[in-house]
């Protein structure tokens, strides 16, 4: 069973941070216009809500990537790909290679800086049609892609 590259935690943390900053700013603006002016009666004085929210965000940013990393595992089995993920809701998936429709290796800016990439596997399935393995070293992701691509398969559904 493989784990993802540990530096994926940084990427996750950064993406949560960006979202957190955005929401905190929105909340602060809301408080500034409504709570501070007294247009909205709120049980906490101006600024406190935002601070609490920011602290919760901070906790999530610190803890969640660790947990997510710990539960993200995958295995390249002889006939199928196996993935395990999820912190609260755990999901285990098997995708037989002959079901792969096509494959992508994608990189965001952050991932490019850290030489990481994600492998996206498309199947013809209706439910979870694409399977994404994030946080792979880019060379490994590309190797895996080529390896899966060469797997002989039928295109019939």
């Amino acid at each position: 069973m493989h784990q993802l590259d540990p530096s994926v935690k940084i990427i996750w943390a950064v993406s949560y941070s960006i979202r957190s900053v955005l929401f905190t700013a929105l909340l602060l603006a809301f408080e500034f216009f409504f709570v501070r002016t007294g247009k909205l009666e709120w049980f906490l004085s101006f600024g406190l809500t935002t601070i609490i929210f920011a602290l919760i965000c901070l906790a999530i940013i610190i803890i969640y990537p660790q947990l997510k990393y710990r539960f993200w595992k995958f295995e390249v089995r002889p006939e199928e790909l196996y993935l395990e993920r999820g912190v609260l809701t755990r999901v285990k998936t098997t995708a037989p290679y002959r079901r792969v429709q096509h494959l992508d290796v994608a990189q965001s800016v952050m991932e490019r800086m850290m030489d990481l990439g994600k492998l996206v596997i498309y199947t013809a399935g209706t439910r979870g049609a694409d399977i994404i393995i994030p946080g792979l070293p880019i060379a490994y992701a590309e190797m895996l892609r080529d390896q899966l691509k060469n797997y002989s398969r039928e295109d019939a559904v």
Partner: peptide, 8 residues
Amino acid sequence: IQTLNIRQ
């Protein structure tokens, strides 16, 4: 079968 999933 396309994929199999176990959800908890």
